[in-house]
């Protein structure tokens, strides 16, 4: 029986985030949360593997209690089990502490064959948690997977996107992959799934249940420290090139030559 673990992160809906130019801060008031878009591909891939090979899909996330709604959505899509790693001491974790905490959670889930992450989260944009988690779990990882060619008999063969093309890579299971949008088209939840999600409780594990070293979680366990956050200057308003297409084109070529970029 295949056991796939999918890691998801809840992020603010970017289209709703705006910047208050007066205070120069992010306006988060009433901004809805969504599952990190890349993680949707991870969930979908997990579900497809389950459909093809049988087995179970667990979704796991570290975050505050409101992340339950995202985990429930994954259950509505078809995941079998949802686990939230939540503890006020986990707050402020960087990718190092997050990878450690997730690894503790996944170990507690028991035997597993494959861990799937999204390529990166759209808020932090680092893509570091996947490889870090694989390291914590002591399993190989492949990033930017755009297709799973083969899975079985303790081995995995995937296509990985790299600059200018792709690589065919094989490795042993258990392993971790991070996936890109090209890999599939995520499904919407089903109604039966939604009703099941309403009934399925989300398992919540805190620091003690996970047996975490308090020195390695949250802010304390983080190696990096954000010392300052600010919003960049808005782009200066541009210039609309006037005239007929020929004149517009001529002006553009002149401008670009003037800047020395062509």
């Amino acid at each position: 029986m295949l056991h796939v673990v999918v890691c998801i992160k809840q992020v603010p809906e970017i289209t709703e985030v705006s910047i208050d130019r007066r205070t120069n801060t992010l306006v988060r008031e009433g901004v809805p949360s969504i599952i990190n878009p890349f993680d949707m591909y991870a969930i979908e891939e997990g579900l497809r593997l389950k459909e093809a090979h049988g087995g179970t899909v667990s979704v796991i996330s570290m975050g505050p209690p409101q992340v339950e709604s995202s985990l429930k959505e994954a259950v509505a899509m078809g995941a079998d089990r949802a686990v939230l790693l939540s503890d006020s001491r986990f707050a402020g974790a960087d990718t190092l502490a997050t990878a450690y905490t997730l690894a503790q959670g996944i170990r507690r889930l028991g035997q597993f064959d494959l861990v799937i992450c999204g390529k990166q989260a759209i808020d932090g944009d680092t893509g570091q948690v996947g490889p870090g988690l694989a390291e914590e779990l002591g399993i190989p990882h492949v990033t930017y997977v755009r297709r799973i060619r083969e899975l079985g008999d303790g081995m995995l063969r995937v296509e990985r996107m790299v600059e200018g093309g792709w690589e065919l890579i094989s490795t042993t299971l258990p392993a971790l992959i991070s996936v890109v949008k090209d890999i599939n088209e995520p499904r919407l939840p089903s109604l039966k799934g939604i009703m099941r999600a309403k009934r399925t409780p989300v398992t919540v594990w805190g620091l003690e249940e996970l047996g975490c070293d308090p020195q390695r979680v949250g802010l304390t366990g983080s190696a990096t420290e954000v010392v300052r956050i600010w919003t960049p200057e808005p782009r200066e308003s541009g210039e609309l090139l006037q005239g007929d297409p020929e004149q517009q084109a001529r002006q553009l070529v002149e401008r670009l030559r003037g800047l020395g970029v062509i």
């Binding site: 499904r187 919407l188 939840p189 089903s190 109604l191 039966k192 799934g193 009703m195």
Partner: peptide, 20 residues
């Protein structure tokens, strides 16, 4: 197919026939 997968066709059918 998408509507089917989302179980929307099942909505008005009784549960004993696979509906909701």
């Amino acid at each position: 197919k998408e509507l089917a997968r989302a179980d929307l066709f099942a909505v008005p059918f009784p549960e004993e026939y696979g509906g909701m």
